[in-house]
Nucleic acid binder design. Structure first.
Lengths: 366, 366
DNA sequence: ACAGCCGTAGCAAGCGCTTTCTATCGAAGA
DNA sequence: TCTTCGATAGAAAGCGCTTGCTACGGCTGT
């Protein structure tokens, strides 16, 4: 029924070994022979049997890309970019050059699913794995991840982190590209402070994620540097951090959560003059909430986001945010996964975040 | 080095066949034996060799999901939804129930890459393939796709279309879920007409895509029904379709194209009172262009989109659009791919599109 | 003119798993 | 008590491909 290597070999009047070598191009084959084989492949419409090939060669051409939420452009952009570097141009039949199959795995942010996908990829003897986005800061899970990744690396799978800090004991990893979330958070807060804001609300992501923590840390760093971590006049100095807590509301990285958290924030601290959101999607929700409360942006309250997703510039007013070069980072991660690019010195590179000042932030009134 | 089935068998003091049967759970194995095997699997940290398994069983647990642009939430949402139905909960090791590996393949809208990915999936003996989004209307490519899909189907791969019309000779397909783009386009135009608009610009997608054509056809259908396909007073009746052409500008489905096409449209026909965009992303660009021309939405000009992506409700003013149940459709496609759900009668189901009237459309002035 | 090589092609042994067919054991039926 | 059958387990034959090693010419060098 299906055409096998042997069929091609028979038609080309050569041995299966020769056909294999023509297809893999890693062994000298006379030009005339090669041509004959290629013609036979074409005539028979032969398609390599991937599993058989992977089994015999002990490696596969699968590259896994793990994302937290593929419906979120933040991940979509990175994954798409990575894929451009992975799925080669392809020649249709036979096996092309460095052509690999990039597979995007949607963990939904769940640690279990993350591990499950890693096992699935391990089972497939994946050539590489790219882990994108923030990690969950749970010691047990991190340990499990480390162990799993070590096993993958042992089996020859290349590991690349993209926009994700390397694991504490980042032994076996090939490369890590991490975003300067802390620096971005800091610069954003500095911007607001310099505009004159003193009470700044923060709509944060889920507390257990590294991304959330880093952005928030940068934010608070800036406030502290500006002497703004103190509680309002008259309050006990020791309560300053409590106050910061009050100005921070956590929730998932989605629009709805941004809306609700902002409402909650406005209830808790009606005197905030600016709101920083965990990311642009959340910021959109925050904007909606602010407006629904009858306030104008930025006249009554400033709002800022993070990531600079494509839609952010089209928000009205355009969203002040921190630009992360998602496409570039994803592409680079893809190249690293393919071994097309050398890992950065030390295995880890920090990618700069650029402050984009737009219309949604302004000096507070008065 | 790596643990194999045989190692597990040795440790559990059973034959490899028994281990295989325990893992696959499709053959009676005494409870005590099963337990012993499972313990051995655990002790040795055994992970099934996917390629070997696929080779022997002649099927794999890969399910391919083809998308045009994974950075676009339109596809991200569908793909993510499909994946929720495909990647089972997973039990970590061994082989879980209906657990499959969903792989998202980003074609970038390129016909060649689409075929390449199909070949790659064929090579992997994928269990199913889900094709999402509009197809390119090129006879040669469609023929190639038909042939490829027929071959895949022959090999036992299930084929599901999601938001994509079935191929002309849709023989081997299992199921097709198509969006009522035409109906949506029609209702949207009817809405604008009923508001009193007479000159409606259309910022369309790439001309060769089915989605583009269907939406545009629906649009023009409604205009025709309203007697608006005629050229402006005084013009030759025969030129009416020329006029429609003038009111239509094609471009890629992205924000930037929406911006530029709108500028072009405004130049060509400064008298339009409403602009319908190919989709929400394009609509955002259109809004920006309109505003940059110093016009207000909807007072000076109405703007509408298509898809109802999450950010659309947050645009200012909120975008009138046509809601497509992307998540539901994606999930259903996933279920169909898994064989968890029966295909619709006739193999093809049309999914309704709902008009969402929001603030970006209003009656024209005067 | 002969040994030694280089350039090619073939042989055959797996890669690790699934599955058909066969064997075995104990209990139930005659 | 002996046969029959159901429930389990094992033996072994591949699945289709890769690759180390061998084989075979024709060249080159002496």
């Amino acid at each position: 029924m299906t055409v096998t290597l042997a069929d091609v070999a028979a038609r080309a009047r050569v041995s299966p070994a020769t056909v294999s070598r023509v297809l893999n191009g890693n062994y000298p084959v006379a030009a005339s022979t090669r041509e004959r084989v290629l013609r036979a492949v074409d005539d028979l419409d032969y398609v390599l049997n991937g599993p058989a090939s992977s089994l015999a060669a002990a490696t596969s051409d699968l590259v896994g890309i793990l994302v937290n939420d593929i419906a979120d452009p933040f991940f979509g952009i990175m994954a798409g970019a990575a894929q451009t570097q992975i799925g080669g141009p392809g020649d249709g039949s036979g096996r092309a050059g460095g052509e690999k199959l990039a597979v995007i795995c949607n963990t939904g942010g769940s640690p279990e699913r993350e591990l499950t996908y890693l096992t699935l990829l391990q089972r497939q003897r994946a050539a590489a794995v790219v882990l994108t986005g923030g990690a969950v800061e749970n010691p047990a899970h991190q340990a499990a991840m480390s162990a799993k990744l070590a096993k993958l690396a042992d089996a020859g799978t290349r590991i690349v982190f993209c926009g994700r800090p390397p694991l504490p004991e980042g032994d076996a990893l090939v490369a890590a590209l991490t975003f300067d979330n802390r620096g971005g958070g800091r610069r954003l807060a500095e911007h607001l402070v310099s505009l004159g804001h003193r009470r700044i609300g923060y709509v944060a992501g889920p507390p257990e994620r590294t991304t959330t923590r880093h952005r928030l840390e940068g934010h608070r760093e800036a406030l502290r540097a500006a002497g703004l971590d103190a509680a309002p006049a008259g309050a006990d100095r020791d309560r300053s951090s409590d106050d910061q807590e009050r100005l921070t509301v956590h929730g998932p990285y989605d629009r709805r959560s941004g809306y609700e958290a902002t409402l909650e924030l406005l209830r808790r601290a009606p005197d905030v003059t600016a709101i920083v959101a965990a990311n642009d999607t959340v910021a959109l929700g925050a904007c909606a909430a602010v407006r629904d409360q009858g306030m104008r942006i930025p006249q009554d309250i400033s709002v800022a986001g993070f990531d600079d997703l494509p839609f952010s510039v089209d928000a009205v007013p355009a969203l002040t945010t921190v630009r992360l070069p998602l496409f570039e980072a994803g592409a680079r991660a893809g190249r690293l996964a393919m071994g097309k690019e050398n890992p950065p010195p030390g295995g880890i590179a920090t990618i700069a975040a650029e402050l984009m000042i737009r219309g949604s932030t302004a000096a507070p009134r008065g």
